[in-house]
Amino acid sequence: MAKTDFKNMNEYHATQPKEAQERMQAIRDVIHEVVPGVEETISYQIPCFKYLGYLIYYSAHTRHISLSYPYTPQFLAAFATELREYKVSRSAIQFPADRPLPLDLIRRIILFRKAENEAAPKKKK
């Protein structure tokens, strides 16, 4: 995918293969279900969701979909067992394209991130 100046998620999705679009839409649907009123935006030229600050990003790649955020040690510890079967860094989880998306796990990840954002001290403007 050539770098483009995406204005919204639909533009980003439209540049991806059909299967990747469907996988991203499934994640998008889960996020909206778990966090009603979540704000959609583009940040770093990838889809980003905001709820009391940055909540989560996702991006499509040839062999996987990444769910990204600078994950806290608490987050990584809470999901350590379940994430063992995926490639994980401190800021990204890769869900392979050749396996079904673990939507229940993704739902719980979003719930955890939502709770982290709700518990974070409010920033002064």
Rank of each mutant, 00 (worst) to 15 (best):
E19W: 01
I42H: 04
T4R: 13
M24C: 15
K7A: 10
K114F: 09
Q21D: 01
Q16T: 06
F6A: 13
A20M: 11
Q74F: 01
E40V: 09
I27E: 00
P17G: 03
H32N: 07
S89E: 06
A120Y: 07
I56N: 11
V38H: 00
R63T: 14
G53W: 09
E11T: 09
T81W: 07
F95S: 06
L76K: 13
R84L: 12
Q45I: 04
K124S: 15
A120D: 09
R108W: 09
L76I: 04
E116H: 10
A2P: 13
T72I: 06
T72A: 09
R107I: 14
A92Q: 14
P70R: 08
T15Y: 00
T72W: 06
Q45N: 15
K7C: 09
P100G: 10
G37P: 04
L103M: 00
S68D: 12
A97H: 02
R99W: 04
R107H: 15
S43R: 13
A77L: 06
I27H: 00
K7V: 06
K125P: 13
L55D: 03
E116A: 11
P73G: 00
P96Y: 07
Y71F: 15
V88K: 12
D29Y: 03
P17M: 10
I31F: 06
E116R: 11
P96M: 14
R99M: 03
C48G: 14
A14E: 14
R108L: 07
T41Y: 12
I65D: 04
T4F: 05
I46N: 03
F6W: 12
A120M: 13
R108F: 09
I46Y: 09
Q21A: 11
A60D: 08
L105I: 12
E118A: 10
E39Y: 02
Q25S: 11
P100Y: 04
E40P: 12
Y12L: 03
V34G: 08
T62K: 15
R108H: 10
F79S: 10
A80M: 07
E118S: 01
K50V: 06
A119G: 13
Y69V: 06
A97R: 00
D104T: 14
A115P: 00
K3Q: 13
Q25E: 07
P96Q: 05
N117Y: 06
R23S: 10
S66W: 03
L105F: 07
Q16H: 07
P17Q: 07
Y58E: 03
F49C: 00
F95I: 12
A14Y: 05
A80T: 00
V88G: 02
I27V: 15
K124L: 10
P47D: 05
P36V: 01
R108P: 11
S68H: 13
Y86C: 08
A77I: 07
Q45M: 11
V35W: 08
K114H: 04
Y12G: 06
A97T: 10
G53K: 08
A26R: 09
R107L: 10
A14V: 04
R108S: 07
V34R: 05
Q74D: 15
K50M: 08
T81F: 13
L52G: 08
V38Y: 02
D5N: 14
S59H: 05
P96R: 03
